[in-house]
Nucleic acid binder design. Sequence first.
DNA 1: CTATATGCAAAACGTTTGCATCCCT
DNA 2: AGGGATGCAAACGTTTTGCATATAG
Lengths: 159, 159
Amino acid sequence: MNSDDAVNTLVSYLERKGLKFTSQRRTITEAFFDPRFRDEHPSVEELYARVRARDARIGYATVYRTLKLLVDCHLASPRQFGDNQTRYEPEIPGEHHDHLVCLDCNSIVEFENDEIEALQDRVAQELGFKIEQHRMILYARCRRGCVVPGDRAPRPAPQ
Amino acid sequence: MNSDDAVNTLVSYLERKGLKFTSQRRTITEAFFDPRFRDEHPSVEELYARVRARDARIGYATVYRTLKLLVDCHLASPRQFGDNQTRYEPEIPGEHHDHLVCLDCNSIVEFENDEIEALQDRVAQELGFKIEQHRMILYARCRRGCVVPGDRAPRPAPQ
DNA sequence: CTATATGCAAAACGTTTGCATCCCT
DNA sequence: AGGGATGCAAACGTTTTGCATATAG
């Protein structure tokens, strides 16, 4: 999803709710969907740094408040990858994937597997439940060197 | 795992590390493995309440510090179920399971599924990784009434 | 115009830490 | 006796909130 589409989605959500579209909300949304950072899962701090590079007058609280709006209109999802930071994932409405976190370089690979999802449904059904959603994170190491060679530091074992 | 076994595990860990076994550490460990709360995943606050019922002189910080020891000797694991609270799970060394969280009554059902785990390994392998561990949480609702009828309140959608 | 949004600083929240004192070993 | 453990309160990092001001609709 590019940032124009994201801004449009936000605008129509705001209209529907009787809320206002401001330059700050535009800037923050564009920073969040910046193609230069595609496939990243920024923390609030990281996003704030991007935002400040575009407009240094925007406050931290506004980033928090706007991120909450983005979550409400399904443009963002909060994630806990076990490094004691809430990270936000840019969403493409209708798509779903899970995550593999490299314990060596901290990179995050997204994947999808229908067989696993079918089994999840079956397990839940056998327990008498119907799944609404799920979270699956695989913590792993790459076989030889990292697939996504990281400039990032290795991370402690999760949780 | 009963609380005596847990205390023994802690004692030998402490000896190995040259640390001391105290009445507080015993009390907290026994409260954590209290059979009356089997299958629960207490937050620090909830565990602290159990501890206070046994010995009102024990401080909050000691519960945190002891919980860290229990994690170090694999008697406890921190978990994030999406309700903005770190919860701790009593562990049986060598066992593994995943969790299903009921969105209606907030109860947590544990399950294990080897087929899913095999698929997880395969997915990771195809991406060039080798799994060290994983986390999977299913968020679901029971078909008709809750399997574990809860005295607990419903919870907001996770994350 | 009016309701909502902003920026700032203060408050809130869960967790950790410094320190004087206590107590296992 | 001495190093580790405790309880308290203060510090901490993250997130939320109150309020005066600014601004979209």
